[in-house]
């Protein structure tokens, strides 16, 4: 595993480009934020990175492996995917979910499920039914299930959409912690959190990649204002440049 290479990725739907000739590379570790307005193609890119089926042209490689050609089991061990919405059809427990996530790597040590639940702060909640969990508990259980097999790449689609600000910040903390040793690509809507936590940012607009750089450089470039049509103010906190939308109430 030496990093992610996306080469000339194009997805057409009903004659319209959803992804338009997207190319970029990422090193094998770090938290990469994928930003852009609605309909920019973020989720489609995330699905493709995760090896989900989408008709496309172009190539995605992780190290030497072609992601779209990987066998299902190999891909599952290598790439973790948290979709935008997750609702199991049966009333499962967090333990069952984490067990299913762990089953994709046969070489995991025994007791890994318990420690993953414990790390997710679900001690004593492992056997509760899904329908009784809070939104935060559901998100933590899903995160534990996806990361228990320690995939080299983690793709996350709008992880905080249904979480309150406290849970959202703690989830960003978990993603950043993983980013220290693994590659994490996260579709994010919260620009403030994205600029505060991400190492690198990819900015998309109408299917095209319009910026790829370190978070600080992207913030300073002003591309966010162009793409979102909103003014941003920047502040520096602890050496990190954070962008915050100007809400227009004065």
């Amino acid at each position: 595993m030496t990093g992610l290479v996306v080469h000339k990725l194009t997805v057409m739907r009903a004659g319209r480009p959803i992804l338009d000739d997207v190319s970029f590379t990422c090193p094998g570790q770090g938290l990469v934020g994928l930003l852009g307005p609605n309909g920019a193609g973020k989720s489609t890119l995330a699905r493709l990175l995760a090896g989900q089926p989408e008709a496309h042209a172009g190539a995605i490689r992780i190290g030497e492996e072609d992601v779209t050609a990987l066998a299902a089991a190999r891909r599952a061990a290598m790439i973790g995917y948290m979709p935008q919405a997750f609702t199991p059809h049966w009333d499962i427990s967090p333990r069952m979910l984490v067990e299913m996530g762990a089953a994709r790597r046969p070489d995991l040590p025994p007791g890994i499920v318990r420690s993953a639940l414990s790390e997710a702060g679900l001690d004593g909640h492992g056997d509760r039914l899904w329908s009784t969990l809070s939104g935060g508990e559901k998100a933590r259980a899903l995160f534990a299930a996806v990361t228990v097999a320690d995939p080299a790449v983690l793709v996350v689609d709008e992880p905080g959409a249904s979480l309150d600000i406290g849970h959202r910040i703690r989830l960003m903390g978990r993603l950043a912690a993983r980013g220290r040793t693994r590659l994490v690509v996260a579709v994010l809507h919260d620009i403030e959190l994205a600029t505060a936590w991400c190492d690198r940012l990819l900015v998309m607009d109408e299917g095209r990649l319009v910026a790829v750089d370190t978070a600080g450089a992207v913030v300073r470039s002003g591309v966010l204002a162009t793409v979102f049509g909103v003014a941003f103010e920047t502040m520096v906190s602890g050496g990190v440049t954070i962008a915050r939308p100007v809400c227009g109430r004065d």
Binding site: A50, Q52, R75, P83, F86, P88, H89
Partner: peptide, 10 residues
């Protein structure tokens, strides 16, 4: 778990 999650779990 849904088709997407099932696929991502192998």
């Amino acid at each position: 778990l849904g088709e997407d999650m099932a696929r991502s779990f192998g």
